[in-house]
């Protein structure tokens, strides 16, 4: 399953809301990274990732998230992850990212 992102500006919360659908892996990571950087360049805000439909993420996808997190932090913004599937939450826990990222 390919990767599809639905990004919206949430005026009320003043955040970027990004719905992730599908898989973030070695073949889709560049698309994912480019889209996130585009949003962050347009407006530097907190990011809220809705992961309800995120089916798979591997170490290359986590690498993109880590480097993006560093970018966002430079501007004193944050990233939040919502509605992780159990298999995705397990990967975050395994790699210690659950302690760094805000997961709700």
């Amino acid at each position: 399953m390919a990767l599809k992102l639905i990004s919206n500006y949430n005026e009320k919360q003043n955040t970027w809301n990004v719905e992730i659908h599908g898989e973030i892996d070695i073949s889709s990571k560049s698309t994912f990274k480019d889209e996130l950087l585009l949003l962050n360049n347009e407006k530097q805000l907190d990011f809220v990732f809705n992961c309800e439909n995120l089916e798979y993420i591997d170490s290359t996808g986590l690498g993109v998230l880590i480097s993006f997190y560093k970018n966002v932090k430079v501007n004193e913004k944050n990233v939040h992850f919502e509605k992780l599937k159990p298999s995705i939450a397990k990967v975050f826990t395994l790699t210690g990212l659950d302690k760094i990222f805000s997961i709700r």
Partner: peptide, 20 residues
């Protein structure tokens, strides 16, 4: 092996394999 909590972008693959 990557030091967890150090935000390393590389070396996670093998670590994940060994963990799972």
């Amino acid at each position: 092996a990557p030091e967890l909590g150090q935000l390393q972008e590389n070396g996670l693959g093998l670590f994940i394999i060994k963990s799972l």
